[in-house]
Each structure stands twice: as C-alpha cells, then as structure tokens.
Design a binder for these strands. Sequence first.
DNA 1: AGGGCCATGTAACCTGTTACATGATTGA
DNA 2: TCAATCATGTAACAGGTTACATGGCCCT
Lengths: 194, 194
Amino acid sequence: MSLQYGILGLLSYAPMNGYTLKKLFNKSINFIWTASLSQIYRELGALEGKGYVLSSIQQQDDRPDKKIYTITAQGQAAFLEWLRAFPDMLAAPKRDEFMLRVFFGSKLGKEELIAQFRKFIGERRQADAALTYSLEDIEESTAALRKSLSIAPPGARDDLLWRMINKRAVSTNRLLIAWAEDCVAELESTDAFD
Amino acid sequence: MSLQYGILGLLSYAPMNGYTLKKLFNKSINFIWTASLSQIYRELGALEGKGYVLSSIQQQDDRPDKKIYTITAQGQAAFLEWLRAFPDMLAAPKRDEFMLRVFFGSKLGKEELIAQFRKFIGERRQADAALTYSLEDIEESTAALRKSLSIAPPGARDDLLWRMINKRAVSTNRLLIAWAEDCVAELESTDAFD
DNA sequence: AGGGCCATGTAACCTGTTACATGATTGA
DNA sequence: TCAATCATGTAACAGGTTACATGGCCCT
C-alpha cells in the first residue's frame, strides 16, 4: 500500500511517466522504499483504476511515446489522508539477512564468522560513501524538480527534511560499522569461541 | 527463502512443532525476521517436500496432537551451505514507513509533523524498554533450550552472539531517538518551515 | 460466561521479484 | 559492434498478510 502513496507523493510534485518515476525513485526515496519498474507500472494501473491518477499519451518522434500520469484531486486527498493518519503502530523495518546470519553464527567457525563481519563492514563503508555522495544528489534533484515544475517553490522545507533523512542514514550506517568492528574485536579476543 | 533457513536453524537446536516454533520466533529472532503462524505452517510443508525436515505425530490426550518436525541430514547440509555462502550484496533492510512519511513531511503543517515525530519517539522509547527486557529473555530462553536439548552444550558462543545482536538493536534504537529529538528541535527553531 | 492459550491448517489476497518481449537511438 | 538508455508492458512465481474454520482446556 505504501508504494502507492510513494508514487502519489512523487506525482504531487509533477506529472510523470513510469520510467521517469522509477528514476526519481532511484535518486530520492530509494534507500527508504524501493520499487521495480514492473511494480511501478502495475501500481500506476491500480491508481488509475481508483481514479487517483489520469494518464495521457505524449507523442515523441525519435523515442517511444510517453504515458504521462497526473494526480487527480481525489488522489491528492487520498495521499494527504494517508500522510495525516499516523498508524497506531508503525511497521518497523524487519527482515535483516545479515542479522539472521549472525544469530546462527555459532554454527560457523570463528574465522569464517569474522570474515563475514568484515564483508559486512566493507559493504557498509561503500554505503557510507554513496550516502555522502547522495546528499549532493538531493540538492541537485530538488533543483531539477523545481525547474521542471517551473514555478520555483521555496523548497526549503523539502531540503531540510531530506537532509534530516540523509543524516539518519549516515549515522545509523556509521553506527553499524562501529558495532561490527567491535564484534570483530570481541570475537578475536575471546577464546570462548572455537 | 531466508525464512526457510530461519526455521531450519531453529530446528537444528531441537525438533519442534509449528506452534512452538512460532513462539520461539517471537522470543528470539522476532526483531530480525518475523513470520506469521500460517506462513510457518506453509514453509514447514515446503521443507518437508524438499526432504529437509521429517514430521511425526505426538499424541496428546488433553490437548490437540502435535506434529513434530525434525531436521534431516540434508536439511542440516542445506542450512550450513546457506550460512557459509555470504551473498555478494546482502539485502539491506528497506521500506521504512516512517521515513517515507518524513520524506513527504513538507505537505504537513509544522505542528502536525512535529507531533508525528513525537509519536515516533514514543514508540522507540517503548522499544528500548522491550529490548532491555529481552536481553534477560535471551538468557532465559537459551537456558530453556539447553534443558530441552538435555545435552548441556556450552552455549557460550550463542550467548555472545545474541548479546551482540541485542546491543546493535539497542544502540540503533537509541540513535533513532536522539536523531528524532534533534529533528524536533530543528523544526521548532526554524522559521523556514510553515 | 468469556477470553486466552493450545494446536492445526486452508484460501484469498496483496506485494515484490524475475524473466520475457519489443525495438529505436546514442555513445564508446 | 556492443552496451546502455529510452519506453511500455505481461506472466509467472515467491513471499507475506488476513480472514476463516475448528474445538477443547484453563483461568478469572
């Protein structure tokens, strides 16, 4: 369900086709909520069925035609309703494969487990770099969105929030690195293991 | 797929029926990987089809009969294979509803957004209490498992790892609280918003 | 008397992933 | 020449949630 609201939310900035929507997903909410292209097309169809969006064909000579989706008044209303209704219990993100592996880590040898932790650290370090990079991206894409809207909104509110989201991602990520390094140190120094 | 390995992993401690497995999930890997009861029954069926587990009926007079599942040698092998094969790119947990809301937070009024942050903080504080509590639970349930296995394994390795998992959960949770408090402070002090 | 625990499952549905299908343009 | 980008989708499958069905025991 949330994916539909994610799409509606992005469409509330500007009308777009599915393909462009996917690219916007990639450079904005990608590390919050992912969607494959086929899923986006499916959900756009569903949204159109509900009357939350309207589509129109934009012809192009050199490239395939675009199907542009525009959010309707009902769509705007449904989106705002969702945004306002804070759930009683919001679904905390679960299903963390690495943690599942750690949980059963005693079945592995000490060296093997440490190696897995190191790989994890490697991935997190890469993510750290990507996140610092994506902060610049955010400013870029906000600017790009503003241009495409051609109404020059203040945008300061979005900038503030998006920087907060990025900050959260960076700091949890760094915490994970520190935690994993601690784990490695603890595993190496203990003789209870193996 | 990971759920099947989660089940196999738990069954590698002791044979169990679906209902008990669900309870074990709840008090062990629940904040890492969740499963509904119906899903567990379905996956147990699938695992039996693959020959990774065997079932036998344990009759009970006063309560409904139990269907006890035992992991087979192939099941053990498949589980270990999965555990050893660290994925090239492990799926980082995505789909965080609260963050999605924050992303679109500029559509809300300042007060409304702050209220949502406060609710988030409230939930995280509750989680913090639950996590500290569950650390005791871990020790309890390890002890219980050891008893039910009746072979008194060292268990020190599991204890170490499970305490590490708990530590990670507690510290990311506290980081989230601090982050959200920062956000509230920043929102309150800014006049760019609203 | 009513709710919660024990215990098993099925069915329908929703969500997400992967593979397939098509085909032109552009840049290395 | 080969891969990537643009552009739309369908189909099949995998994984997860919710509702339904059944029924006895135990505790308040």
